[in-house]
Every structure is written in C-alpha cells, then in structure tokens.
Design a protein around this nucleic acid. Structure first.
Length: 710
RNA sequence: GCGCGGUUAGCUCAGUUGGUAGAGCAUCCCCUUGACGUGGGGAGGGUCGUAGGUUCAAGUCCUACACCGCGCACCA
C-alpha cells in the first residue's frame, strides 16, 4: 500500500498532476479513445465570455456537463465535449472602452474603429488564458484540440456564410422600423435584451388645446409634440362624432396636426378611452399610424434629447416632460395627475431606459414562409422542433415557456451600432447594395454595423464542427446529443440555435436540452458584487478541492431549480472525498494482510450490492437527476459500505479462517473498483488518484468501463 | 392581466404509478485511541401553506384561495 494513504486526502497536492495526466493521455479527444464502440455523444460547452472569470454559475454548468460526459465516455460512447469562448460583443467592447477611458481619458471616437478593435483583440487574447485555465481547474474533460472562439477565422466565416444564405432566402431584410434604442449603450437591442422594471410614474390627463374635444392621458408628456392622431375605439359612442375630423393646435410651442381615428386596438376602459398617437416613439402607435396612413415625425434623437422647434429643442426627455407639464398648467389644459406604477423598459446590459425610435436596421423575418423548408416560417420551424419531440427540454415545464415565447415573437433586430463583433457583410456603392462575405471590389463601403452576438452564438453547435465545410466532425457529431445551460438564456440562445440549425442544416442542433438553475447564496439571494456575497469557485477549489465543489453544486440541485450554496456544504463533501480515501486504505490493508483468494457465495452478495448502487446511479443520470444519482452513491458508500460492511468485515479479515479472510478481502477490493468507477464522473480527481495507486489497474479510470452494462 | 414554479423537521431539500412521512446539516446524549475525530451509535423534532372535493386510503389526484419567486404582455 502506498504510504500516502496514511495521511488525509490532499486535493491541492493532487489535482494539477491528475489533470495533466488526463490531458497527456489524449482521451479528451474522442479520436483517441481506446474503446468507443457505442456511437457518438457530443456536447458543446456554452462558451464563457473571453474576458470573464469563472463564477459559481459556470462551475455548476461545468460540473453537470462533465459528469454526463465522463459517464458517457466510460459507457463507451465516442464522447466529444467542445470548449470555446465567446466574444460577447457589447460586454467586451464596453469593458475595454471603460479601461481606456480610465487610463487614457479617451473615447472610442478618439481612437477610431481600427485602433479600438486592435486594443480589444489584444485584451481578449491576454485574458482568454485566464478563463481557459479556470475551466481546467474544475476538472472539465474538454477536448482542447477543438477549441473555438466566436471571433476566430473559421467561426467568422461561418457567420458571414449564414448571413448571406439567410439574405438570399429572403429571411434577412433591411427595414425602417421602430427599434429598441439604448441611449446609454448607443445601440439598438433586441426585444429579449429588455428588462421590465416596475416604477412609479405620473399619468397626466389633458387636452392639446382649449377647443380640442377629447382629453387623453400619458406618462410621457414630452412625446406628445410628436403626435399626429388621437385614436378611439370604433364602438365608443362618446367619440363617434369626432372620428375623421382633424384639428390644428400649437402644443408647447410646436404646431401639430391631429386627426381623430377609430382603431380596434384602443381599450375604451383605460383612462379617457382615447389614445394620443405618437407614431415615431411607440410600437403600438407606429402600428396604428401604419393602418391609418399617418405622418410619423421623429421628435427625440439617439441621445434621448428633443428635436423640435422652439423652447423644447435640445432638452433631455425628462426636462422636456417637466417643461410640458408646466406649460399645461399655465394654459389651464391639465385635467388630472395621478400616480401609477408602470413597467419601464430598460436595457439589460447598461440599465439605460429604452427609447423606441424608428431606424433603418437589419432584421430576421420570423413569419416568412421558406420555400426550401416546405413553406414553413422560422417561427414554425422553431415550434415544430420541440413539439415533434425532435428536441426535448428538461425540465418539461420550460417547453410551455418556450412555446409562449415563440407565439409572441416578432422580427429579430440583428444590427448593432458597436464596432466589436461580426461586421454585417453588406456593401454599398453609389446607391447600390451587395451582400457578400468579402468586398465586391474597389469603392465598395461595408455596412458600419455589427451583428447581435446571439446571431453568431446561434451557429455554435455546427460552427464549432467546421460548418459550412462538410467536415467529418459535422457528419459524426451533429446534431449534438445534449445542450446544457441556464434557463435564463433559453430564448437568447437555445431558441436561436434551433432557428439557425433548422434553416441552415435542416435539422435540430441537439436532441435534449437540460436547463440548470441559478446558483444563489445561502439565503437565496443572487450573488453580486454589491451584496458582497459572492463565493468564488476558485477559492473554494483551493480550500476544499474541485471534487467537493462539484458535489456541492450537484447535490440538492434538481433540474431547473435554483441552488442555495453554503460553504459548510462544500466542506462536508471534502469530508466525503476523505472518506473514500480512507475506505481505500482499509481495503488495501485488508488485502495486504489477508491476501486475495476465491470468493465465497456469502461474500459475493456484497459486490452485488455495490453493483446495484451503480445501476441506480446510472438510472438517475439517464433521467438527468444528477442530484439523486450523487445522493444514492453518497448514501450507499458512506452509510452502507463504510459503516456497515467494513465494520462487519473486520473480524473476518483478522480471523483465523484464512479462506474466509481472503474471500472477504477480495470482495472488498472488487467493491472498491465499482465504487471508484461509479463515483468517478462526480469526483474525478480523488477517484483517479486512488485508481492510479491500486495494484493491477493499468489505464486511467476516466476510460475504464462503466460498472454496469447499458 | 396571462402563465409557470415553490410552500414537507430549526435550515437545505427528497418523496417514483395515491397505501400510516424521509435524508443531510444543525441540536442533545453516548461511544470510540490499529481505515478515517473530516469518526461511530442513538434521540428529540413535522396536524406535509389554507379550505373544500374524489377515494376504503391523499404530501401525492381535482377545485378555489393565500403568500413567496419568476417569465411573458403594444394598457397609453
């Protein structure tokens, strides 16, 4: 027996060298697996931000994925887990911009596009090793030979190709429409990047002028200088006589031409039952204006400042709101002011208040029939993928949420006014437009905008496999078997991957989706810098070992449920690793003293019991109940094998019946093999370390056969 | 407003097709110095959110309601 078993298990002294052994073996790459005879099993790692650092959410994701991957690998599947990092366009650019502003007091406009991009590339290149090494620390058995970055050459050209194909199919178009403008981030954002925040607001009821017959209500007084109509419900008897009439007023110094229109979308029960229509600054109003052929003057610009004649010009929206209110009071037009709570749309990234503006942007059409896909729309393709069972979502309840999202989906705005990202492959020259991955020639100017980062992420399951080339990897590993990610990016990412894969490849991107919950602190609060309640996974790994951290993120975490993490629990699982260590010591001492021999039937039941435990663990893993799987193993190993079976074995081992002693020692040793193999996906480091010290074990545990057949 | 999830022991959570409530941690008591004190044995502790219903039998199925959390929504 190796002397190291006389001391407690020391993760810090073992983990680095074990990971190196795994990497050197080449077994992370499925091409090198010694016995992979069960067909392919592939997963892509949801790529973390290149410039980010590992947090508990990442650690939980890595634990879940690595457990499944290691389990499949041991079962004999040709198992591939592809690592990668994400450029995270907006997040990364603003991070670098902030740095430069702080250190050099320069804005991106001072630097210019090219210089900023050079700086960003240098920054991402430098910081990517951090996150990559952190992924390793968790024990992740990722195939680094297939590492991908969303902005590397292969992935960049995949994005260009995807854009061109979608454009050619009529699914990408440029249109002047109301978009979500983030004045803080100075870019458009998609509907999904909006967070609704409940805030108090003042609902003001007034008339445009003394002789205007209908009062309207609004929380955004400043936009009223952009009104071109008042809409009422067609059946509303109060206003019937006014429909079709027009009025000229001067409102807060701005001349307006207001038409009274009847529109089904108006709720007669709300407010006065009449709606002031501001086409350029509200989606609803834009639609009404379209139906009634109204003018759509823009009165607010990209900096959330007024652009009208007179006093108001140049004022910020909030100042303008005050100004108009004072004007109403002075003119005696104000009827009522009441406080209400309303949902304000803010940008997820910057927190800026969204300003709906009409802009010329690029969109993906989700309701357009696609000839080469049987006349189905993208929306239908996304819906069918899940409805048909081609993609299953765990836990199932998220399927409903997914359908609901699809049913409310509108065209996806994909152009962003930032510089870092995949540049839109559209070229302009003398009023002509060409769509092509590379420049059509002299004098053609490329579109200034870049693509929504989720556009490129949507290609991830196949761009990582070499698409658009027809590679062997693509043929072997796509569709991938599983996508594991947080429920918070179901729409952003999961849905977009289904969209892209269905259109570009005509197949689903993955067969199963497993959604994990969020990791919270022990009181159930979100971990955040401002609360100071962040538990750093790497600190925990240092203190208790990666195995303990992994277990703490699995146990008690049912799919889709948030997990409350407590440092005490991590400590508890470090104890478990040590327990396994000491079980090994006892078993090795037993074989040392009693020797190995023929197994008697009365002892064989012990091995059978351990095998049963392994069967149970297998079943739970197959159901994606890793929490129950880990718990079953924990219970059986500690409270059954260690507490009962080992205790009962002591008299036999030290007894005078040599045959019985040898039989018992042999059985313990066989049981240990099953225990280590079954535990390996969950606690890869300690099990591999022990395995390497056992006599008769040749190859690495990570490629040992799973104890029970499947 | 529509929808989803949660509500089981002090805390964190299990509870498979309905058959008299479980685990870990915490608490208390005891034991143990040749696998491990990061140990072992034991105890206390719950009218399973509320009110109804179905059933021989409900934590489990049905209907309301309450509270907490979340998602979606063009209520100005």
């Amino acid at each position: 027996m190796d002397d190291k078993f006389l001391k407690p298990y020391d993760p810090a002294a073992t983990e680095a060298s074990i990971y190196k052994k795994w990497e050197d073996s080449g077994y992370f790459n499925p091409d090198n697996l010694p016995h992979a005879d069960k067909g392919p099993f592939s997963i892509v790692l949801p790529p973390p931000n290149v410039t980010g650092t590992l947090h508990m959410g990442h650690a939980a994701m890595l634990a879940v994925e690595d457990i499944i991957v290691r389990h499949k690998r041991m079962q004999g599947y040709k198992t591939l887990w592809i690592p990668g990092t994400d450029s995270a366009a907006i997040a990364t650019q603003s991070k670098v911009e902030k740095e430069i502003q702080k250190n050099e007091k320069k804005s991106r406009h001072d630097l210019g596009r090219e210089e900023l991009l050079t700086r960003i590339d240098a920054f991402t290149e430098e910081s990517k090793t951090t996150i990559i090494n952190q992924l390793r620390r968790m024990g992740s058995s990722l195939d680094w030979s297939r590492y991908a970055y969303t902005m590397d050459e292969v992935r960049y050209s995949a994005v260009m190709e995807a854009f061109v194909r979608m454009y050619d199919a009529g699914l990408i178009y440029r249109g002047n429409r109301i978009v979500n403008w983030d004045p803080k981030g100075q870019t458009t954002i998609s509907d999904d990047e909006i967070v609704h925040e409940e805030r108090k607001a003042s609902l003001v009821t007034f008339t445009y002028s003394k002789d205007f017959p209908i009062a309207i209500s609004t929380t955004r007084l400043e936009t009223k200088v952009g009104d071109t109509a008042v809409a009422v419900h067609p059946d509303d008897v109060r206003y019937k006589e006014f429909v079709g009439k027009t009025y000229d007023v001067v409102f807060a110094g701005v001349p307006l031409h207001i038409k009274i229109v009847a529109d089904q979308s108006v709720d007669p029960a709300f407010g006065t039952g009449a709606l002031g229509v501001t086409p350029a600054h509200s989606q609803t109003d834009w639609d009404i204006a379209e139906r009634h052929n109204l003018e759509r003057p823009q009165v607010i610009n990209e900096y959330a400042k007024m652009t009208v004649e007179g006093e108001l010009n140049g004022k910020k929206v909030l100042e303008a709101r005050e100004y108009v209110l004072e004007w109403l009071k002075k003119e005696g037009l104000l009827q009522k002011e009441e406080e209400i709570t309303q949902n304000v749309s803010t940008a997820e990234r910057t927190g800026g208040i969204i300003e709906p503006l009409p802009k010329l942007q690029w969109f993906v059409a989700v309701n357009k029939p696609i000839a080469e896909r049987g006349g189905k729309t993208l929306k239908e393709l996304m819906r069918d993928s899940v409805q048909s069972g081609g993609v299953t979502i765990t836990p199932e309840r998220f399927e409903k949420i997914y359908f609901h999202w699809i049913d409310n989906l509108r065209d996806w705005c994909i152009s962003r006014q930032i510089w870092f990202g995949h540049r839109i492959p559209v070229w302009y020259k003398d009023g002509e437009t060409k769509v092509s991955a590379t420049s059509p020639g002299e004098g053609w100017e490329q579109d200034q905008d870049t693509l929504d980062t989720w556009f490129s992420s949507g290609l991830w399951t196949f761009s990582t496999l070499g698409w658009p080339e027809k590679t062997d990897d693509l043929k072997t590993y796509h569709p991938t078997a599983l996508l594991e990610t947080g429920y918070d990016i179901l729409f952003f990412w999961v849905a977009r991957m289904i969209l892209m894969s269905q259109f570009l490849l005509g197949e689903v991107p993955f067969k199963n989706v497993y959604l994990h919950g969020l990791v919270r602190d022990s009181k159930g609060r979100k971990m955040s810098k401002s609360l100071g309640n962040i538990i750093d996974p790497l600190d925990m790994v240092e203190k208790y070992g990666a195995d303990a951290v992994r277990l703490s993120l699995i146990m008690g975490a049912a799919p889709g449920n948030d997990l409350k993490l407590d440092e005490n629990r991590i400590r508890g699982y470090k104890n478990f690793a040590n327990k396994v260590w000491n079980i090994t010591r006892f078993v090795l001492e037993s074989t040392d003293t009693a020797g190995e021999g023929t197994v008697l039937p009365e002892d064989a039941v012990i091995v059978e019991e351990m095998r049963k435990m392994s069967v149970e663990v297998t079943k739970h893993i197959d159901d994606y109940r890793l929490d129950l799987a880990a718990d079953a193993a924990y219970q059986c190993i500690w409270y059954r094998f260690a507490d009962v079976i080992l205790e009962e074995s002591k008299p036999f081992i030290k007894g005078t019946d040599a045959a019985r002693a040898a039989s018992r020692a042999t059985v313990l040793r066989q049981s240990l093999d099953i225990i280590l193999a079954t535990l390996h996906p969950f606690m890869p480091y300690v099990t591999e370390e022990i395995w390497g010290s056992l006599p008769n074990n040749k190859d690495l545990l990570m490629v040992e056969s799973w104890p029970v057949a499947n």
